[in-house]
Amino acid sequence: MEHNQFKTWLKQHEIEHEEKWLERFESAFKGDEQAIVNIALLYKEYGQYDEMYDLLDKASKRQNSEAMYELGNCYFEDLGEKGSEHQAFLLYKSAAQLGHRDAMNNLADMYLNGEGTTVDEQQALRWFKKAAQLGVAEAMFALGMMYEQGLGTECDESQAFAYYSRSAEQQDVEAMYRIGMIYFSGELGQQQDNEKALEWFLKASEQFHVDATFNIGYCYEYGYGVTQDNEKATHYYKKASLLGDLEATKKVLSYYEMTDAAEASKWREKLIVLNNDIYE
């Protein structure tokens, strides 16, 4: 795509900051690898997949790890019907070997799940550790799971809890929820503690984690770690229902069937709609 064509394309799509993108286009034309990646990702956002693949491939051949990682994502997501898990695996591996931390995490995922390659739990553990050392919260969570379940290593409850905790401290929502469940059930060598469980459920709920939100309602309904309060329980069950939770919707309906016939009728209709959506 030539300069004038790109300028016309920007106007057609009403893309803001036209001058900035034109400058990046010129830099990409001159070989600036980061500009090439940026333009490619703009094409990705607007569905220009042929142009996207062309640019990312160009930068990848120059050993640009960010381009390799993004190109791997495109193949994995099957954008433009060019899906190839094996090609994604190879690109993630190349980027990971060049030090790209998110590529390390994705490579580890593919080894763990046997996507684009054979299952290799030891390699998964190795690459998750490398990614975790570089601060990838998802990799820390995965390591917690692997040590808990004995995947690629022996079970180690202490290590599992330590990795889950590190991930939760990095704001990983699944880790926050898992820590909550660990305290709620007294797992991985931790004493059962409803108050700590509720604290972590609340943190996960702030990031719209549906199961954590449901569990807060459950804690208020039965008085786990907090004073029993059916109104607050219903408040959190409503939030979980809005996130698509069927059981939470049933809880709200049950509450209103005892307190407000008109509201019960509304929630009965919502339950029918949600139930239909789930089983369509």
Rank of each mutant, 00 (worst) to 15 (best):
F128A: 00
T249R: 05
E18Y: 11
Y75A: 01
E121D: 14
K251N: 14
M68Q: 15
M104V: 05
K93G: 04
E148C: 04
A124G: 10
K250A: 13
M140A: 03
W9K: 00
A168S: 08
N73P: 09
K196P: 01
L253A: 08
G72H: 06
G186P: 04
Y49G: 06
Y255D: 01
D245I: 07
E138N: 12
R101G: 05
Y279I: 07
L125R: 08
F128S: 03
T117E: 07
W21T: 11
I272F: 15
N194W: 14
H100P: 00
R62P: 01
E221A: 02
D277M: 12
L243I: 08
D102R: 04
N105H: 14
A261Y: 13
S241L: 07
E269D: 04
L274S: 06
D109Y: 15
E263R: 00
R166M: 13
V136A: 02
L151M: 12
S265D: 15
L10Q: 05
G47I: 10
A67W: 10
Q34I: 09
A162C: 09
A142Q: 13
E195T: 09
S65I: 15
W9N: 04
L55C: 09
Y75N: 01
N113E: 13
A59P: 12
Q48I: 09
M181D: 13
C74G: 03
A142P: 02
F29M: 08
K11W: 09
A137W: 09
Q207W: 09
D32S: 00
A28L: 06
Y43I: 03
